[in-house]
Design a protein around this nucleic acid. Structure first.
Length: 237
DNA sequence: CCAGACGTTGTT
DNA sequence: GTCTGG
DNA sequence: CCAGACGTTGTT
DNA sequence: GTCTGG
């Protein structure tokens, strides 16, 4: 699945340029690199402007709250949406029809191993740089305060050959040519596992476990001898 | 008809 | 065990 | 995803 | 809002 990720670029303007999106200047003012984005956090999404073809880059909360929800309690149970069932699920069907987004990131974490000894891996693009994750978003008005929140969920697929030994799900990573079909038409054919050679995996520290930790040292590769005797899933790396 | 759910993951 | 918060 | 709380009353 | 279950 996808329960934590990173966006470590120095300038959010570079993300706007890469995705050909207009940057919300109010949101951009508070930008900082993130090494441990967790459910419930504010993060960046690229979406089409209302009725148009222009893309915007702005902040939204991770964990989809449907516009009809009485409260935001279910947000944490809607951080991911299975690609296979998007069109059937009541919570996602409407958003699939009209509110797709792309979630910019430069890596995501997956945990593996036995209960109580699970270890995080950081997966990133083999050549480095940005990844485009497929997502859905929605607006929700808090009935108590009248405040409008925008929230999103990340689509998941079965794993590719790299991720399969670690986990049975992974986020839907869009190739550059798949971004527009996803945003404009919700073309579900783009929701497939990333090519087997698209990503590389690094074992990282269990300090990632706590969402309070959010600094560059989280991405430092952890050596085998620091790994506490876990089995070697990645002998060559 | 009204009431109640609407989700994913991991673990057992 | 289960829910909330980060 | 994992970590941490899970409660009320009265007093400051 | 919309669907399923009773």
């Amino acid at each position: 699945m996808c329960g934590r990720f990173t966006l470590t670029v120095a300038r959010i303007e570079a993300v706007a340029e890469a995705f050909d999106a207009a940057l919300d200047p109010a949101d951009a003012a508070g930008y900082r690199p993130r090494y441990n984005v967790a459910p419930g956090d504010q993060h960046w999404i690229v979406r089409l402007a209302a009725g148009g073809r222009a893309r915007t880059l702005g902040l939204a909360g991770w964990g989809l709250v449907n516009h009809w929800a009485p409260d935001a309690a279910r947000a944490f149970q809607q951080i991911n949406a299975r690609a296979e069932t998007l069109a059937q699920r009541r919570a996602y069907r409407e958003a699939l029809k009209s509110r797709r987004c792309v979630v910019p990131t430069d890596g995501f974490y997956e945990w593996y191993g036995p209960p109580g000894a699970r270890r995080p891996m950081w997966l990133r693009a083999r050549a480095g740089g940005l990844l485009a994750l497929a997502g859905l978003y929605e607006h929700w008005t808090n009935p108590k305060t009248g405040e409008v929140r925008t929230t999103f969920t990340i689509v998941t697929t079965p794993p590719n050959a790299l991720v399969a030994p670690i986990h049975d799900r992974m986020p839907a990573v869009l190739a550059e040519a798949e971004i527009e079909p996803w945003l404009a038409k919700g073309d579900r054919r783009v929701l497939h596992a990333a090519p087997d050679d698209a990503l590389v995996a690094t074992r990282v520290s269990r300090r990632v476990n706590s969402a309070r930790n959010d600094d560059p040292s989280l991405l430092e590769p952890e050596r085998e001898e620091d790994a506490g005797g876990q089995q070697r899933l990645f002998g060559g790396s």
